[in-house]
C-alpha cells in the first residue's frame, strides 16, 4: 500500500488558536502572525486532525460547491505555503486510519484559500480599502469590539 502523507504542526515553534472563526498562527521564533479564514480555516482543520492531502481535498469537496481541480489546487497551494513558512511538517499518516468525511446539507461556494501573513513592521496582506471617510478625510467605520 502506498504511504500516505499527513502533516503535523511545527510545535513548539508554532502555536495556533481559532479566534472568532479566524485561525491565528504564530511562528514564535520569527514573530510572524498568519491568518486563515473560511476555506483556509477548513483546510487547516483537516491538517490539524491528521488528514492526508487527498482526504483534505475530499473533505473540501464535501462541504464546498466548486470545481474539483480548483479545490485540489487551492489545497495544494496552501499546504506548500504552510510548509515553506515552516508552519507544518510532512509526516507519515498514522496507520491506515481513514478519516470519516461527513457531507453537509448546504454546500458553500468555494473561494480559494489565502494565507495572510503579518510581520511586526509590515502587514503583507491588507484588509479592506478605505470606503467611508468623515468630513476631514478620516475613516469612520463603525464596528463592534471583536475580542
Amino acid at each position: 500500500m502506498e504511504m500516505q502523507i499527513a502533516f503535523k504542526i511545527n510545535s513548539p515553534k508554532v502555536v495556533q488558536e481559532t479566534i472568532d472563526g479566524e485561525v491565528v498562527i504564530v511562528h514564535l521564533e520569527k514573530g510572524d502572525y498568519y491568518s486563515l479564514m473560511n476555506s483556509g480555516a477548513d483546510i487547516w482543520n483537516g491538517i490539524e486532525t491528521g488528514m492526508s492531502q487527498t482526504e483534505i481535498v475530499a473533505k473540501m469537496e464535501a462541504i464546498y460547491e466548486g470545481d474539483s481541480a480548483e479545490i485540489a489546487s487551492s489545497v495544494n497551494n496552501l499546504i506548500e505555503e504552510l510548509k515553506a513558512e515552516e508552519i507544518i511538517i510532512p509526516v507519515e499518516k498514522n496507520g491506515h486510519q481513514i478519516t470519516e468525511i461527513t457531507p453537509v446539507e448546504t454546500k458553500l461556494k468555494f473561494e480559494p484559500a489565502t494565507l495572510g501573513k503579518y510581520t511586526d513592521m509590515e502587514e503583507l496582506l491588507a484588509l479592506d480599502p478605505i470606503h467611508e471617510v468623515d468630513e476631514m478625510g478620516w475613516p469612520n467605520a463603525k464596528t463592534q469590539e471583536t475580542f
Partner: peptide, 29 residues
C-alpha cells in the same frame, strides 16, 4: 505544558496589538 500556555496567550495577544512580533514572542516565551 508550556506549549498549551503559549497557545492560549500568544495568538490572542498578537492578533489585536499592532506591531507585535518577534520581541513580544520572546518575552511571552
Amino acid at each position: 505544558n508550556f506549549t498549551t500556555g503559549l497557545s492560549a496567550l500568544v495568538p490572542s495577544t498578537i492578533k489585536q496589538l499592532p506591531n507585535t512580533g518577534k520581541t513580544a514572542c520572546q518575552i511571552m516565551m
